[in-house]
Write a protein that binds this DNA or RNA. Structure first.
Lengths: 259, 259
DNA sequence: CAGTGGTCTAGACCACTGC
DNA sequence: CAGTGGTCTAGACCACTGA
């Protein structure tokens, strides 16, 4: 046995997608059609026909590679993708993660931004959070979270963590948008931001993330941990989870080139 | 029908992994054991038992989430993961992507670095490459590529593209390591690097990448496009493809905090 | 050799979509 | 209603691993 049948079928369909013979948006042949189309691979007689499960295994591979998307009752289609670029580096190390900055950045790229549900909670720090904020695991932290959409499609999940002693007595304690921005609000209370560290990983989404972001099988997420600090200490940790099939992060480092 | 059986099985196993009841490295019950273990879900009589395909569908979900790994003839195991952090920002915008820098960075984190097969080719620019180097599609470019391993495991695939007029007459045309580094070599020929732009995306690997990097199902890759420029023009594009389950990219922006 | 996962078949019934 | 994908079963044979 050279190569499993379902892998051969997947490889053939993948090739057709990559060469453009099956362009984005196009419907694949139905499962029963594929059973017949690839029947000749089974090495059997003339009436050759694959079993449906074999065909479905092949399609599952392509789904998990993010190449196709099955729509119940309608068919299986080659995925289309458009990406949005986030400029994650900033002059002077004082970036803006507030709503206005998001709205401006997206609008510039000709897309429609939306921000949903600013929530504020008080939690205890997980090990991940505690380590980056340089506090103890279990210390209380203020969490401000929101969801962002582009062109009506869920795009990112953002949670910002503040040590309780920093957030206490500021507008961060209120579950509302801060007009002048959180960076300015922190500065007014003696926590001027002078820089940040970004850590970026990619992984497959959790169940909850996949549901909220509307991710099909085979779409990973980009996770960005941004630890902002004053000259003295970390003042904020922002975790962003982005839909991997529609996000690009960009950093400009050093002097700008001649553009 | 509330929720598909195989999804219920996957959800239960996932919960056990997340709570640590099934810690990393542990073997899952065998497929036939799972058939019996979760038989009660089938809503049937006492001898309840799932079909093997149903169990396999459940395991496939966890594999595609990168949570477990099946080893033929041995069993299915909860994945363990260790990550290596790449500091991608650099002082003065003049980073070093050369072998020595890689070796030093990995050694510092107590791991064993290796670099394989430096290759040099001449190709024509794809649209992706041409756009970033600001040349025409189809223009000839010099490509220098290599693979890197950490602790003996394939970790990244790197390809650097240079416009032909920049590479001509330099050591870049030879398929050998450049002792003083490519950045210095370019500077000696009048192309001093003053900054770069990084673009980061994540996606599922191609077939070839999955094979080379030894990625199981459900492991995405991080792809980093670094366009380095002199004051005048782009001088190099480096594309790195990293195993997503063992890589973290980091950027320090602005003034360093008090550490 | 026994036990594990890998591949494949044949057929059943269900749920969703759109005409 | 016909056609699509979603779920599930029962059973077969193969390939790999390790004792």
């Amino acid at each position: 046995m050279a190569e499993a049948l379902y892998r051969q079928v997947a490889a053939d369909l993948r090739a057709k997608i990559n060469t453009g013979e099956l362009p984005p948006g196009i419907q694949l042949p139905s499962e029963s059609a594929l059973e017949r189309l690839y029947g000749h691979l089974s090495g059997s007689r003339g009436d050759a026909k694959l079993s449906r499960n074999t065909v479905r295994l092949a399609i599952a591979i392509l789904q998990n590679e993010g190449l196709v998307e099955a729509r119940h009752g309608r068919g299986t289609f080659v995925r289309e993708r458009v990406t949005f670029t986030v400029l994650a580096s900033a002059e002077e190390g004082v970036e803006v993660t507030d709503r206005d900055a998001f709205v401006a950045a997206v609008s510039v790229q000709g897309r429609k931004p939306e921000q949903l549900g600013l929530r504020m909670e008080i939690r205890t720090a997980s090990p991940e959070v505690a380590e980056r904020l340089r506090i103890e695991e279990g210390d209380t932290v203020v969490v401000r979270s929101m969801n962002r959409l582009i062109d009506g499609r869920p795009w990112s999940i953002q949670e910002s963590f503040y040590p309780m002693d920093i957030a206490a007595g500021t507008l961060l304690m209120s579950p509302q948008n801060i007009e002048h921005g959180t960076v300015t609000e922190l500065r007014r209370h003696g926590h001027g931001q002078v820089g940040y560290r970004d850590e970026i990983v990619c992984r497959m989404p959790t169940q909850a993330e996949a549901v909220f972001l509307g991710l099909g099988a085979g779409v990973p997420v980009l996770e960005l941990f941004r630890t902002a600090h004053s000259p003295d200490r970390p003042i904020r940790l922002t975790i962003n989870v982005y839909a991997g099939d529609s996000t690009q992060l960009a950093y400009n480092i050093g002097e700008p080139g001649n553009e």
